[in-house]
């Protein structure tokens, strides 16, 4: 098995599904000959042809609408939004249309759309390019929101997303694209959507997190282990709908929980997780539910993101607070 980066795993997943199902089509801005800003679609047009992998004009709402029309007629579109910060241009297609189409049509049609987009902080891209906007999407029943935290999951989750018959927003954290490698099998495999993973088992405190914060949380957990605190790390993988069962099982086991997200505090996925825990497991808690998140301000420019973004040190401190409560 070869060691691969997350971007390689993603390209491989796309190639696998293009090969596997002739209805899969990949399109977006600069994804064809150019292979995408981060090279996620590199070589795919050459291999599968311009009918299967093609460039669109700069027209995000067009890209979203195209996907819906194609999907209603039996295709399995995998459009790319060049950066997720450009999602506002295509919001109606996603939230106003795709999310509700199954409901409106009483399931007479599938909507197997997978919208891929890079996002996330830590690589000094400016403001909108870095924003964590998963919370916006998570508020819309009818779409699934998937965020892989490593190369292996990225491939399996993307294949599942493409094969899934509902619209999926597949968010790829830019910092994870090339920062580490992992063994990723050549062949196709799936990881179920809507299912969280126990990234590390522990007994004292549960960290519930996703995306780039999984690595930070594991780093924190490793340090805390040396101090005798046993930390469990839950990687949500799908942030909407939430895998409540896995979350609650972990909380019931440890009785202490820290929710960690890169996004700003207000509303968002972390808040939803906290609310679910307080509704369902409050009697298992030995400490208040705690949270590590970015502040409720605009994503900062340049080096300032180093101060702004949550990291392993912040997580460690918060876990200790929960542990010592």
């Amino acid at each position: 098995m070869a060691q691969k980066t997350m971007i390689q795993a993603i390209t491989e997943a796309l190639a696998t599904e293009l090969k596997n199902d002739e209805n899969v089509v990949v399109f977006g801005e600069d994804v064809g000959n150019n292979g995408g800003v981060f090279r996620a679609t590199e070589g795919l047009q050459a291999e599968f042809g311009e009918d299967r992998v093609f460039d669109t004009p700069l027209a995000e709402s067009g890209i979203g609408g195209l996907a819906i029309g194609l999907a209603l007629e039996g295709y399995r579109p995998v459009p790319e939004i060049q950066f997720f910060g450009f999602v506002f241009e295509v919001m109606d297609s996603i939230v106003g249309q795709a999310a509700r189409t199954r409901y409106r049509m009483s399931s007479t049609r599938n909507l197997p759309i997978t919208i891929r987009a890079p996002f996330g902080g830590g690589v000094h891209t400016p403001e909108l390019h870095s924003d964590n906007l998963e919370g916006l999407m998570a508020q819309s029943p009818g779409i699934k929101v998937v965020i892989p935290s490593n190369p292996y999951d990225a491939k399996g989750l993307l294949i599942s997303a493409i094969r899934d018959n509902d619209p999926v927003i597949f968010l790829e954290h830019m910092k994870l694209y090339r920062s580490f490698r992992e063994e990723v099998p050549e062949e196709a495999y799936t990881i179920p959507l809507g299912k969280a993973a126990v990234a590390k088992e522990g007994t004292d405190v549960s960290i519930i997190t996703y995306g780039a914060m999984v690595r930070e949380s594991l780093k924190a957990a490793e340090n805390l282990e040396k101090e005798g605190i046993s930390v469990e790390v839950i990687d949500l993988r799908t942030v909407a709908p939430l895998d409540i069962e896995t979350i609650i099982a972990s909380v019931e086991k440890t009785g202490r929980v820290v929710v960690v997200q890169e996004a700003q505090r207000q509303a968002g996925v972390g808040a939803a997780v906290m609310a679910e825990i307080s509704e369902r497991a409050v009697l298992s808690l030995e400490a208040p539910i705690m949270r590590v998140a970015a502040p409720d301000t605009v994503f900062p420019f340049g080096q300032a993101e180093n101060i702004w973004l949550p990291n392993a040190t912040d997580i460690e401190a918060k876990v200790k607070e929960a542990y010592n409560f």
Partner: peptide, 22 residues
């Protein structure tokens, strides 16, 4: 220092701002 290349604006000079969104 909070905007960077794509958000340069200068209202006193009549520059309502560059933009990261095409």
């Amino acid at each position: 220092g909070k905007g960077g290349s794509m958000h340069i604006a200068d209202l006193d000079k009549g520059n309502l701002g560059s933009n990261g969104i095409v």
